[in-house]
Computed example of a mutant assay.
Amino acid sequence: MTSGLFALDRHGDRDWAPGMLDFAVNVRGAPPGFVRSAIAATLDDLARYPSSELFDAVTAQIAALHGRDPGEVLLLAGASDGFELLGRLGARRAALLQPSFTEPELVLRAAGVPIVQVPLDPTRPLDARAAARIPDDADLVVIGNPTNPTSVLHPRTAIEALCRPGRIVVVDEAFADLTVDEVTGMREPESLAGVRLPGLVVIRSVTKTFGLAGLRAGYLLADPALAARLSAGRRAWPMSTPALAALAACCGPEGESHCDEQARLVAVERDAMLARLADVGWRPVADPRAPYVLFEVANALSVREELRRTGIAVRSCANFVGLTDDHLRLAVRSDDQVTRLVEALRRVPTEVK
C-alpha cells in the first residue's frame, strides 16, 4: 500500500486514475474557451518551428504584465522547467524551506548541489525566527508561496528579508494567481513577481489555473544578469507554438479576468469545503490560502485506500520533508464533489478512522 509513496518524484497525478473523482491534483478543471481557441489557431503552424517573433512578443507581454523589462523574463515549459535551470547556477549549498514541492530537491541533487533541509512549522507563515535557521553559507534558498502542500501564504516582506549579497532566493509562485487578500479581496497580495531585487527569482505557472497541465507553460522572473545565467546554453525552441499561444492568452486581459473569477471562486469553495469536512472531524493543519488544503488524519494511508475503493483520489503527503504519512492534501472542489467525499468518509470503517 505504501510502495512508492515516499519517493521524491511522486506527485498527485500518481494518486489519480481515469474515472476517479479527483481531489489529488490541483488543476482547476478544463481550459477555458478562449485558451482553447488560441491553441486551436496554431494547429496549422505545427509543421514550422516556433517563431522567434512569437517568443519575443509573449516575453514582452509578460514583462509588461509585471512592470518589468523583457530581459527579466524567461518563458518556461511549466514551472518544473524553471527548477531544472537552477542546476546551472553552481550553488555551493542550497537551503530548501520545507515542506515544499519536491522538484527543486530532485534537480539540485542531480546537479550535485549540497542540500540542507530547513523545516518550517507547517501551521504558520515564515517569520524572522524561522528564517534564522537558514545557514549563513546557503547561497541558494528555495521557498514556495503559497507553499505546496501546506497552503500557507508567507508575507512578501519575510521572503524579501532572505535576500542578501551573494545569495539567490527562488520563490515558487505556481499558485499565487489564486490567492486573495482576506480583507481587501486584492489578488496576489504577497506575490514578488513585480519586485526587482538582485538574486531574486520568481517561478510561475499557468497550468493549474487554466487547466493546462498536459501542455506545460509558465515563466521565470529575475534580474537581467541572473536571467542570462539561467538561459545560457538553453536548448533552442524551449516552448512549442501551442504553448506560446496558450501562455499569451493566459497572461492577456481575458486571462487576468479568468484568474480574478477563479480566485474568488476558490475562496468561496474552500470555505464551504472546510465547513463540510469539519462535520466529519477533518480540520486543516493551517489557515489555507491556496486552492488546496492540508489535513492530518489518523491512519491516513488506510483512509486514502478506502477512498480509492470508492473512486475518490486524495494526495498522500508522505514524501514531503517535515510531514508524515498521516498528512493528506485535498484540492478545493465544488460542493457537489465535496458531498460525494463527505458521504464516502462517513462510510469509512471505524477501525480505519
Rank of each mutant, 00 (worst) to 15 (best):
S3K: 15
F6H: 13
A7H: 02
A7T: 15
A7E: 11
L8I: 00
D9Y: 02
R10V: 03
V25D: 04
G29P: 03
P31E: 04
G33A: 10
D44V: 04
D44C: 05
P50R: 12
S52Y: 15
T59Y: 05
T59W: 11
G71I: 00
A79F: 07
G82F: 03
F83G: 01
L86S: 11
R93L: 14
A111V: 03
L120H: 13
A128L: 10
L140M: 13
R156I: 09
A161G: 00
L162H: 01
R167C: 08
I168F: 04
A176G: 06
L178P: 12
L178D: 11
M186Q: 09
E188S: 13
E188R: 12
S191Q: 14
S191N: 06
V195P: 02
V195W: 08
L197M: 05
I203L: 14
I203G: 09
S205L: 11
R216C: 01
L226H: 09
R229W: 07
L230I: 01
T241M: 09
A246N: 06
A249D: 08
P253G: 02
C259P: 00
A263R: 05
L265H: 12
V266Y: 13
A267D: 04
A272F: 01
G281T: 11
D287R: 11
Y292E: 13
A298L: 14
A298I: 11
E305N: 15
E305M: 14
E306D: 15
G311Q: 06
V314N: 06
L323A: 09
H327T: 13
Q337W: 12
V338G: 00
R340C: 01
R346I: 08
R346W: 13
T350G: 04
E351T: 05
V352I: 15
